[in-house]
């Protein structure tokens, strides 16, 4: 062990480093793949969540689609508007501001409101329960409560309430649609954030049956339809539905007289 061994080490490593890096630089020239430099810039501007809401297999695929013109920046519901305009600038496009959409859970059937019909001992996911017999709760249209939507959310924007009903955090929700896909009963829908009045029920059974399974089920009594003069609320197939083109009195309830209180104001006016 003497000083010369330090020199040998430095020289050996230096030569190795030089030889390999020279080799790599030659290889990278000979084997280079031409990639549009805009793609890397755009990937950096996209949120990096790889949620698939745009319809592409992740942010990298979306960047390629944007550059080749197959997609437009507004297809990404998650990116904030600052990054969207930067992306549009890179692509030489005009920025179109689309209104933000958020998820809404159209059911109030938690364990307090829905009757329990059975002790369910199967796989504890909504999908499994839905396929087998509908899970422990009585309504066949309503929330099962095992949280498939909670697990699907990449943004931590939906949580289970104490009584087994999912609650959307409208600030965190990016409208990616994963919870919409996850719900086997299509109870969750995406709506523009300026909408606040919703019929929180999906039950289309006859009124007697609906009432017998859940306290807050829509019993298609028609009071809301009459209160809006047929414009705005209509009862179709045993369920009240909002016609958002016609019902412009948001965020006011059409009437206080809904007997089961299934029409609800969701969120705060003035949210963005």
């Amino acid at each position: 062990m003497d000083i010369s061994s330090i020199f040998y080490a430095i020289i050996t490593m230096g030569v190795l480093g030089f030889v390999f890096s020279a080799g790599l630089s030659i290889a990278s020239k000979k084997l280079s793949v031409k990639e549009d430099p805009r793609i890397t810039k755009i990937i950096d501007l996209l949120p990096g969540a790889n949620c698939g809401a745009c319809g592409y297999a992740g942010c990298a695929a979306m960047a390629e689609a944007l550059v080749s013109g197959k997609a437009e920046p507004a297809n990404c519901p998650v990116a904030n508007s600052e990054n969207l305009s930067k992306i549009a600038e890179i692509l030489g496009l005009e920025v179109t501001e689309k209104e933000r959409k958020v998820a809404v859970v159209l059911c109030q059937g938690d364990t307090n409101n829905q009757k329990k019909k059975a002790e369910y001992l199967g796989v504890q996911t909504c999908l499994a329960a839905h396929l087998v017999g509908g899970g422990p709760r009585a309504c066949n249209w309503g929330c099962i409560g095992y949280g498939d939507c909670i697990r699907a959310c990449p943004f931590d924007a939906i949580h289970m309430s104490e009584n087994g009903l999912p609650v959307v955090d409208r600030e965190k929700c990016t409208g990616c649609g994963k919870c919409v896909e996850a719900c086997p009963r299509n109870i969750i829908e995406l709506h523009p954030i300026s909408r606040h009045v919703f019929v929180l029920c999906k039950n289309r059974d006859n009124p007697k049956l609906a009432r017998s399974v859940c306290k807050t089920a829509c019993i298609s009594c028609g009071i809301c339809e009459r209160a809006t003069g047929g414009k705005g609320f209509k009862v179709i197939n045993n369920l009240a539905e909002v016609d958002y083109d016609l019902y412009t009195k948001e965020p006011v309830l059409p009437t206080d007289k809904c007997p089961t209180k299934c029409i609800v104001i969701v969120g705060n006016p003035g949210e963005t």
Binding site: M13, L16, G17, F18, F20, A22, S28
Partner: peptide, 18 residues
């Protein structure tokens, strides 16, 4: 590329031999 890798290798060799 060449400078970074060579310097990294040299530094590594120096530190380890010392």
């Amino acid at each position: 590329m060449i400078i970074v890798l060579t310097i990294a290798a040299i530094l590594s060799g120096a530190i380890l031999s010392v």
